[in-house]
């Protein structure tokens, strides 16, 4: 049975401090994906994080060049400043093939609270738009995520870039309590036994394949998934099925 991969964690562009063999153009990324056997990817642009969400979101759309294999993920900021979330925001998402949103509250200096995003997050829940919560430096903190889900328990969240030190003590309670919380598999698969344990306890529906390219080796998460101690059907769910289901459920 051939396993198709839909990667939930790739960025285009380069880091300010230098990147090792990044994909600057869509064609470069697609070539890499072909080499690896990754069919589709949810992508953002590093400039959304490091430079400016406003400009970075535009750069993402330009860089994706309308590729049908790439699905955009824009970065949001508090609606009150009207830098990102403006009139017809969801219409623009649709027009530009953007199916998910991410945010980096520490680096972009805002709070992940209902007072900031209340109405907007209610809209995300209604529209089943996934919110990617990166744990990379400058992303979210565990306290922020716990507080966010306490306020918006139905929010569809993909927690990505899990830390190098195992994070099961943080993630398992979230998986237990909130049915719409998912884990991205890249760094999860780094931790011996954690990937399998998360699936055993909470189901393969809760883990989504992600590689972390260009910072991480996609071969690492792929080889791990292909030879992990889960069923073939569960491997298919993690590799692409779960993300396909989420993306096809988005209402823009």
């Amino acid at each position: 049975m051939e396993i198709k991969f839909f990667d939930a964690n790739i960025y285009l562009g380069t880091q300010m401090l230098g990147s090792y063999k990044p994909a600057v153009k869509a064609s470069e990324l697609l070539e890499k994906m072909d080499e690896l056997g990754i069919e589709k990817a949810l992508v953002y642009h590093m400039s959304q994080f490091e430079y400016s969400p406003e400009e970075g979101n535009k750069m993402l759309v330009e860089t994706m060049e309308g590729s049908k294999r790439l699905f955009g993920c824009w970065t949001i900021l508090p609606p009150q400043t009207e830098e990102i979330i403006t009139e017809d925001f969801f219409g623009r998402m649709k027009k530009n093939r953007v199916f998910a949103l991410n945010l980096f509250p520490v680096h972009h200096r805002f709070l992940l609270k209902g007072i900031v995003f209340g109405q907007f997050f209610k809209e995300l829940i209604k529209r089943k738009i996934p919110l990617v919560l990166s744990m990379r430096e400058g992303g979210s903190t565990w306290e922020m995520i716990y507080s966010l889900l306490n306020e918006f328990p139905e929010l569809l969240c993909i927690i990505s870039d899990l830390g190098i030190w195992g994070v099961d003590r943080y993630t398992f309670p979230l998986l237990e309590k909130y049915r719409n919380v998912y884990l991205e598999s890249g760094v999860l698969s780094l931790h011996e036994g954690s990937f399998e344990m998360a699936i055993k306890k909470y189901g393969a529906e809760r883990v989504i394949f992600g590689s972390g390219f260009p910072e991480k080796y996609p071969e690492a998460a792929m080889l791990h998934l292909l030879h992990s101690n889960i069923s073939a059907a569960d491997k298919m769910k993690v590799a692409s099925g779960n993300l396909e289901t989420i993306i096809s459920g988005v209402k823009l």
């Binding site: 011996e192 990937f195 991480k216 071969e219 080889l223």
Partner: peptide, 19 residues
């Protein structure tokens, strides 16, 4: 090396194959 039981074999083997 992997720091086992910290890091998984297939993940790290995949990384070496990637590099």
């Amino acid at each position: 090396g992997t720091d086992m039981p910290w890091f998984s074999y297939h993940n790290y083997i995949g990384a070496v194959l990637g590099a």
